[in-house]
Design a protein around this nucleic acid. Structure first.
Length: 659
RNA sequence: GGGCUCAUAGCUCAGUUGGAUAGAGCAACGGAUUUCUAAUCCGUAGGUCGUAGGUUCGAAUCCUACUGGGCCUGCCA
């Protein structure tokens, strides 16, 4: 269902006669857009005003000459000129009805496949196995999966790859922990749980020791910041009117506060750890644990047979844990090329960079220096170990060989944007510039305290329990007996459970997708699971109501094949508003993929649900004035239901037949 | 020090890439219900789009400066 394309085509023939410059024709065509104010128009062409200088005529006159040459009679019921020279288009009901007929008959809602499909690699989710997954990972997972679905739906060749962190220091932790803290009985019984316990144990000891080591540095930082304040104060005393110095003072004072806060939270962490006598004893017997962890990691990387054997043994167990999450979230990947997959290629990659003079020795490390960046991209550390930057280069090279993508998307939070800028610059230098590499960054997941969630702080919310809670809350709200009796629905526990799953998990995904991708995202369970306003539950509820009407219609003797043959009559304002919104589905999907912003999809679906509620309130379907009208409205409702279902499905959110 | 990013209604957020009178939800207030499922609908109120300039037919959107947050900034990812 394309609206703008045929309309623009008509404008093109007129504009080409009017304008000599083809570029001007194109830019004018792009000014034909959906109207912001539905009371004025459905679509508007803002082309006359910018042309007034080019053509040397008043905009109203230009608009007039465009309109007089324009034939849109089959698509629009009116074409008018208003205001400063806006050309307002109102679509005709019969044209809308014809479009909806097509959508009604097609499982893909008559969405056309793109003319030139692109090969698109999407790297998303990419958690570190062994480290417990936390709320931060869900955003990459949910956004990435949605983008992949939509691009595929539009006809692109999409390849999804979960770039698992399966080769890093966390395995050193588990290996060290396994060798020193493992309860073999527990490990045999529940390997996943025991490995997770071991990991947390080593993490705790290492964290405590690091805090201790940090203390003098933090104290120094406070001291330093205070001295700086004094310095600036004397400077300001000498020149009290200088605004720059006053600002400098404010900055310096803030730095003191931050430094003190950091020191205090460090103290707090230490004190908390010291309450744990077992932890203290273990810390004593395992001094400098982090160095030992790094040694285990290095041994693994250098092919130590024992560690490699352990790694091979642990990995499936760690995978199992995240697989459970993916199964619950219903997220799949085409490939799971984790970091370990690239391990053997790294040496060659670095040598190649060195041979091409891109990488140079600096302070014992091998670095790629880039124009416009203060700091280089380090591809090999002093100790000879490789870094994520190295792996990322190898990964891009591998993907080029394997898939030769036109577009390569990395769905990773915005804190890594510097890293990706450098990475893309390097990739360009090594000859991958033909691929459109894009960092699909998203806002940090914040706690309710307004501070970023951090894995290292320890107190992360487990993803499993978070999902469980969402489901439980959905159960309370949707399936409470009082409500179900009120709306006259009886159901078995099994159906209730299924509804709670769909609604609860949908709520979490929807909350993640509904925010502008680039904004920071405050994780607030209360808000996520609230089932009113702009939430998935409201949309799912609209769907369930439509399904209920369709069922009732059949009980009343209206057969689906009967309303399929009937013609759509769009007369009431709420019907027309609904129809207009429905035919924009394809346009909206393209819009949302232009900058990869799924929130345009949630917004569309929410608006659609609202428009349906309004229609539902104003136009009775089953009690319409005659059988034709009933059939027409059943058909319209069917298209709404299908659009809601397909739209939610693209976001990875399900629907239920009743709720 | 350098760089990136954000600031919109009391709160949470949109804002179609520069278009007409800046929009939703929540909260508040008023109305609608013998319901095709009221998790609803209709209405009222709420704004110097952080501040000051600039660019032009036209700015929340673009450029500059300023204010205030967040993030990154050579061997973690």
């Amino acid at each position: 269902m394309q609206i703008l394309k045929p309309i623009r085509q008509r404008f093109r023939t007129v504009l080409e006669k009017l304008l000599d410059d083809p570029a001007l024709v194109e830019s004018s065509l792009e000014r034909i857009v959906p109207s912001r104010d539905p009371s004025l128009a459905d679509y508007q062409a803002n082309i006359a005003m910018p042309l007034q200088k080019v053509l040397g005529k008043p905009p109203l006159e230009i608009a007039q000459s465009v309109v007089s040459g324009l034939d849109l009679s089959d698509i629009c019921q009116s074409v008018s000129i208003a205001g400063a020279g806006y050309i307002n288009l109102r679509l005709s009901p019969s044209w809308l009805a014809a479009q909806l007929e097509a959508a009604y008959r097609d499982e893909h809602l008559a969405v056309t496949k793109v003319d030139a499909p692109k090969t698109i690699v999407i790297d998303y989710s990419s958690p570190n196995v062994a480290k417990p997954m936390h709320v931060g990972h869900i955003r990459s997972t949910v956004i990435g999966a949605a983008i992949a679905h939509v691009l595929r739906f539009l006809g692109h060749k999409v390849i999804t790859d979960n770039h698992l962190g399966d080769w890093g220091t966390q395995f050193g932790m588990i290996i060290y922990g396994y060798k020193n803290f493992c309860d073999q009985e527990a490990y045999k019984k529940h390997p996943v749980a025991e490995l997770s316990r071991i990991y947390r144990k080593v993490q705790a000891i290492s964290g405590y020791q690091e805090s201790l080591a940090q203390t003098p540095k933090l104290e120094q930082a406070v001291e330093f910041a205070r001295k700086r304040v004094e310095q600036v104060q004397t400077k300001l005393a000498a020149a009290p009117a200088d605004k720059k110095i006053a600002k400098e003072l404010a900055t310096a004072e803030r730095q003191v506060t931050t430094a003190i806060e950091e020191l205090q939270s460090n103290h707090k962490k230490i004190e908390e750890s010291q309450q744990d006598t077992l932890l203290m004893a273990e810390s004593d017997t395992h001094p400098a644990i982090y160095e030992k962890v790094l040694a285990e990691t290095a041994a693994l990387h250098h092919g130590d047979i024992g560690n490699l054997k352990l790694w091979n043994e642990f990995l499936p167990n760690c995978r199992q844990e995240i697989d459970t999450i993916y199964r619950r979230l219903n997220v799949q990947f085409d490939h799971w090329y984790g970091e370990s997959f690239y391990h053997e290629m790294l040496g060659a990659v670095v040598e190649d960079l060195f041979a091409k003079n891109l990488a140079v020795q600096s302070d014992g490390a091998l670095c790629v220096f880039l124009d416009g960046f203060d700091s280089p991209m380090i591809v090999r550390k002093q100790d000879g170990a490789y870094l994520y930057a190295t792996t990322d280069i190898a990964t891009a090279m591998f993907r080029e060989r394997e898939f030769s993508p036109d577009i390569s998307l990395y769905v990773v939070d915005h804190r890594q944007s510097d890293h990706f800028k450098k990475l893309f610059a390097v990739l360009e230098k090594i000859g991958l510039g033909h691929t459109d590499f894009r960092h699909i960054s998203f806002g940090t997941v914040m706690g309710t305290d307004g501070k970023p969630f951090k894995t290292r702080s320890g107190s992360t919310v487990g993803l499993e329990s978070m999902l469980d809670e969402a489901v439980a809350r959905a159960m309370e709200v949707v399936c409470n007996p009082e409500r179900l009796t009120g709306v006259g629905i009886q159901m078995e526990d099994q159906e209730k459970e299924q509804i709670a799953q769909v609604v609860g998990l949908g709520a979490i995904k929807y909350a993640d997708l509904a925010h502008n991708r680039t904004s920071d995202y405050v994780f607030d369970m209360d808000k996520m699971v609230r089932l009113e306003g702009n939430t998935s539950a409201y949309i799912q509820y609209s769907y369930a109501r439509i399904r209920s009407i369709l069922r009732k219609a059949q009980e009343k003797g209206y057969d689906p094949s009967g309303w399929a043959d009937s013609s759509l009559q769009l007369t009431e304002p709420s019907e027309l508003a609904l129809a207009l919104h429905l035919v924009r589905f394809e346009e909206m999907l393209h819009q949302s993929m232009q900058e990869y912003t799924p929130n345009l999809i949630t917004e569309y679906l929410y608006d659609l649900a609202k428009l349906f509620s309004s229609f539902y309130d104003q136009c009775s379907v089953l009690s319409a004035s005659n059988a034709n009208e009933v059939s027409s409205r059943l058909k319209l409702s069917s298209v709404v239901a299908k659009t809601l279902r397909v739209g939610l499905d693209l976001l990875g959110i399900g629907v239920v037949e009743r709720m």
